[in-house]
């Protein structure tokens, strides 16, 4: 069992979740309420990682954030880090790949909050921020929780983009899924199997816990009905 890789996977999942969830909430809420004609294009853009092979996303990340690219040069000169073959690069890649998992459930949840409730809140004297925190968020939180669970689970198991952008540097970019691939390549099925089983268990528990909370909430509502 490669505990370093496991630790790195957890770190990556945590950073991705912390940074991506606010992005998901803001973008999902905006997409749910905007009237812009560009909405279908924006939705398509955010959903792209669902349909594109991870290698394509990884390739473009390498092209646009490589040390010889303008963006890569800018980041290197301002922050002193390279996004290629480094942990910060993995986090950026993970955020991009997980955009649909963080945005789409949140968007659907905010879409379900009717305009009538917005109007009622405004006529109750609530500012737009109060309406967001007191009415919209409590009603949309199952969508936010779904987004968090999906992002966490997907990041823990992400392989293609991580390998393309981060490579396989122990302690720096080798996550659990890369370590499994590494062990398979090294004809070490026992270690690969142990890690695969562990990842399976962790993912299952994470997703089951998320669904459990949602289901309990649903039952409470049914009981009160």
């Amino acid at each position: 069992m490669d505990w370093n890789a496991f630790h790195l996977s957890l770190q990556l999942a945590a950073w991705t979740l912390v940074l991506l969830l606010p992005i998901g909430i803001v973008t999902g809420r905006w997409l749910a309420k905007t009237q812009t004609r560009a909405r279908p294009w924006l939705q398509a853009f955010f959903a792209l990682p669902l349909v594109l092979p991870p290698t394509v996303v990884g390739y473009y990340l390498l092209v646009f954030t490589g040390t010889r690219s303008p963006i890569g040069e800018f980041i290197m000169s301002w922050f002193g880090v390279s996004l290629v073959f480094s942990f910060p690069g993995l986090v950026v890649a993970s955020i991009l790949v997980n955009l649909p998992f963080a945005i789409l459930p949140v968007q659907r949840a905010f879409e379900a909050v009717s305009n009538e409730l917005h109007d009622a809140a405004a006529c109750c004297g609530m500012t737009p921020w109060q309406t967001f925190t007191r009415i919209e968020m409590p009603l949309a939180w199952p969508g936010v929780l779904s987004a968090a669970v999906l992002t966490l689970g997907h990041t823990l198991g992400e392989f293609g983009v991580v390998l393309m952008v981060g490579g396989n540097i122990p302690g720096e970019t080798r996550t659990l899924s890369i370590a499994i691939f590494d062990r398979v390549q090294a004809f070490d099925p026992l270690a690969a199997g142990r890690m695969a089983g562990f990842l399976l268990l962790i993912s299952l528990v994470t997703v089951a816990l998320g669904y459990g909370v949602l289901e309990r909430r649903g039952q409470q509502r049914q009981k009160s009905a």
Binding site: L117, A121, A122, C124, G125, M126, T127, P138, L139
Partner: peptide
């Protein structure tokens, strides 16, 4: 709307479903 001194009752009432009757009024 939130700065106008008015009350509004819509056709379907627009009650906040996650709040009790008292909390709805308290809103």
């Amino acid at each position: 709307a939130y700065q106008r001194p008015l009350g509004f009752v819509s056709q379907t009432f627009g009650l906040f479903p996650h709040l009790t009757a008292a909390e709805n009024v308290g809103a």
